[in-house]
Nucleic acid binder design. Structure first.
Lengths: 352, 352
DNA sequence: TTGAAAGCGCTAACAA
DNA sequence: TTGTTAGCGCTTTCAA
């Protein structure tokens, strides 16, 4: 008879060949002749280990190719040092810079970004819901939408959420945006000063607070001066912006100034005005964008635009996230980062 | 005297208020009146749970706002469903598309990307070494450099490594690249057919295999036809490319055709030729890029270029990673994805 | 300065 | 179909 109560080794002890795992702290401990917790301490900054012990441990670790597992660490500490970044598909050249700056800023603080691309509109909850499973230390929403369900779920999970380049009214979610209203206003003022009377606005996506606010500031000032801007939707795409521009310029009373909700669309507008309507941009027509992303500075466009100071915005995001992680209470709710109007040659010269 | 051997509750049981953690499977189990493993099964696709039990569990989970922790799961399964993506700082508009496509492709397979930005050159090991601590299921290197140390460390850690848009000779690391040599050759052939005799190449970064291979194919064919291209380094930056272009065009025997190692630099070249030297691009001078990234198609540039088919390259990467994760042995070592020459108006018309 | 031990949230083998 | 149990790799008391 086989003994019933003496399994020679626990079945879990056996590992299949293919499932060989990396060396653990215990492996190192065994070789170095110390306890596993000593190994842990040797890899913890500012822990109390005798120099000689640490030395032995590091040698053993090196020998084995040991690296502390963030998984194990996260399980005990409850922190992952990972930050979720939700971002929508978009051609907007603003996003690459944003990702890079966020990655740099958080990277230097020891955080990594876990990327969640969502559809550019519609419901991004399915993918976003998953982010909580990763137990990210914070969630940054760069363009995705956040249902109130998910927002409150993050809240109760204690996961800080910061919106960048987006706002959601009423949810009490912290957000960092450029001064979209002020920028729209500044652009209106500038175009009015140039003497433009027939102006148009090309919107991005209607659900985007960014586009709405830019339009708001623009319209507000225009109407105050008795000008009612034309309007078309460009959908934040090159093709959408081209269609919008064509529609406006082929209309009965075409505008002599168009403000596009971002640089990307403005560039499409320049192409249409220049190559399809034979207009001299900055002369026959003024074109303005928003962002001051890379291509705005390229000579072929030389676009007048309102800057969106990414680095500063990212600093604010970092600041918000840090204070929320440290539990210094919720950060200031809506941070609006001022930009400035950059006047280039896509608009008429003042005094023309 | 106080009893020495009866700690009322384990000290670890106490949690500070601020450290409140999300609900666990045990919490759910307690409420649903089932075992913790039942909860686990209820959240595992294709596990064996009675419908009514699952129902109860899901209700309890919902009540508590429970979400299974990927940390715990990873610890037991040894898989994180996270893929590390190392990428260098760069303005190249190729990268944003690459990140997006990778994120899409892996996302639909249930993997997320963890971002590691590295310096564009120099040693990226410090940041890359850290990637192993995260126990990523695979590592994709889009531009970063990989020391042989780290390569072998990944190897022994069993972490699949795939290079995209990069090659490293001799390490036996799987790589997916565009047909850089073939592209360079195709461009040479095309320029020769146009009758160009004074041609130049503007390189990216010397350490980049991409730039080297493009140059290789280009030079090879050029020299075979008795043409020795001029050369300048553009460093993959806008400013570098401008300097390179100025140097070439201001030289004693300026080229009438320039091949830039990527579109980004070619665009800078167009600006310089057009606005600084008053040349008609596509007429006085032919300019060619490589990538067919977004701006190449913009009318103001309308750049002749060789396509780098990102989506297909990403498919290959996914394929490599999958087969390596499944342990189907190492994937085919160097995958070269053919592109095609796209002729636009930045080069002379054939037969001019 | 070090080690023992408990526990973090989960999966998986096994028994019931 | 369900529960029991061990264990994943680590940090953190606490005691020595």
């Amino acid at each position: 008879m086989t003994s019933k109560k003496k399994p020679a080794i626990s079945p879990r002890k056996r590992r299949t060949r293919t499932d060989s795992r990396p060396p653990t702290a215990s492996d190192v401990a065994r070789i170095a002749g110390v306890s596993q917790s000593a190994v842990s301490r040797a890899f913890t900054a500012g822990a109390t280990v005798a120099p000689r012990t640490r030395q032995r441990i590091l040698e053993a670790a090196d020998l084995l190719g040991y690296r502390p597992s963030n998984i194990g660490r996260s399980l005990t500490t409850g922190k992952t040092r990972i930050i979720g970044l939700a971002i929508g598909y978009s051609d907007n050249s603003f996003f690459p810079s944003l990702i890079r700056e966020l990655s740099k800023a958080f990277g230097s603080l020891g955080y990594r970004l876990l990327l969640f691309y969502t559809g550019d509109d519609g419901n991004s909850d399915p993918v976003l819901a998953e982010v909580l499973n990763y137990r990210v230390d914070a969630l940054i929403l760069a363009s995705a939408f956040l249902s109130s369900d998910l927002a409150s779920e993050c809240q109760s999970a204690g996961t800080p959420v910061v919106l960048i380049n987006r706002k959601i009214d009423g949810h009490g979610v912290v957000s960092v945006t450029a001064d979209n209203i002020g920028g729209g206003r500044a652009i209106a003022q500038f175009l009015l000063a140039l003497g433009h009377k027939r102006v148009a606005f090309v919107a991005g996506i209607d659900s985007s607070s960014t586009s709405r606010d830019r339009e708001l500031g623009f319209n507000e000032l225009m109407r105050a001066r008795g000008v009612v801007p034309l309007r078309a939707a460009g959908n934040y795409t090159l093709e959408g912006a081209k269609r919008a521009a064509r529609g406006l310029l082929a209309g009965p009373d075409p505008p002599d100034a168009i403000f596009f909700a971002n640089d990307h669309m403005a560039i499409a507008g320049i192409e249409v005005a220049r190559y399809e309507f034979g207009l001299r941009v900055g002369d026959d027509i003024s074109i303005v964008g928003f962002d001051d992303a890379g291509p705005a500075r390229w000579q072929s466009y030389d676009l007048t635009t309102y800057t969106q100071p990414i680095a500063i915005m990212v600093d604010h995001v970092v600041d918000c996230v840090r204070s929320m992680i440290n539990g210094d209470g919720p950060a200031q709710e809506d941070r609006i980062v001022p930009g400035e109007l950059v006047i280039r040659s896509s608009t008429r010269r003042p005094g023309n």
